[in-house]
Design a protein around this nucleic acid. Structure first.
Lengths: 94, 94
DNA sequence: ATGTGACTATTAGTCCGTT
DNA sequence: TAACGGACTAATAGTCACA
C-alpha cells in the first residue's frame, strides 16, 4: 500500500494526538478501484456482485468510488464473491 | 489468507442468498492475532498503541481478540501506527 | 496491563427513488 | 448500467466503571 504518513495536528476527545493518514481517502479510493477492476474482470455488473455478497447495489457503488468506509466483514464478503484473497483488494496498482 | 468458502444457507432481507465465510470469526481472530503480534514485536502495550491510533484501549482489546468488526479506516490507522503495510495485517500465520 | 459489560453517539448499511 | 440523493434502521465507534 505504501500509505503516506503524517502525524496529525488534531487531538481527539482525550487530548491525544492520533497518527492519521492524510490520504485515507486515497486509500479508500484505491480499494474501490481494485474491487471494480476485479469485478469487471469477472464480467459482473455491480448489481450481480452486490447480490452475490448480499450487500446493496447502491452501497457497492459507494465502496467502489471510495465514498464508503466498509467494515472488514464486508471486505471479506467481497473478496469471497470475487474469488480472490482479501490481500488482493489492498494492493495498489501503482 | 486462504479463507475457506462455503455458500451460506441464510438469506438476507431481500431473500438473496449471500456468499458468506463460515469462518468470518476465524478471519477476525486472525486479524487480531496479527495486530497483537506486531504490537508486541514493537514492544507496545495495548494502551500505547491505542493512544497512538487515537482509539480506545478497550476497543483495541476487542479488535485483538476478534470480537470487533472494525472499519477499514481503523485498520489503516492501526497499520500506520504499527509501521506496517495494511496487507501485513491480513496475512495468516498458518 | 488486559478483559468485559453496559451504555450513547455516530456511522454503516438498507431501501426507496431520480438522473 | 451506474451515479447520486434522502430517509430510515442496524451496526460500529467510542466512553466508562470495574474486574
Amino acid at each position: 500500500m505504501a500509505i503516506t504518513v503524517t502525524l496529525c495536528t488534531e487531538t481527539n476527545s482525550r487530548g491525544v494526538c492520533a497518527v492519521e493518514p492524510v490520504n485515507l481517502d486515497t486509500f479508500k479510493v484505491n480499494l474501490g478501484r481494485q474491487i471494480r477492476r476485479l469485478r469487471k474482470e469477472s464480467g459482473m455488473s455491480q448489481e450481480a456482485l452486490a447480490d452475490h455478497c448480499g450487500v446493496f447495489r447502491t452501497y457497492l457503488s459507494r465502496i467502489e468510488r471510495g465514498s464508503a468506509n466498509p467494515s472488514i466483514s464486508i471486505i471479506a464478503l467481497l473478496a469471497l464473491a470475487l474469488g480472490v484473497d482479501v490481500i488482493e483488494l489492498f494492493r495498489s496498482d501503482a
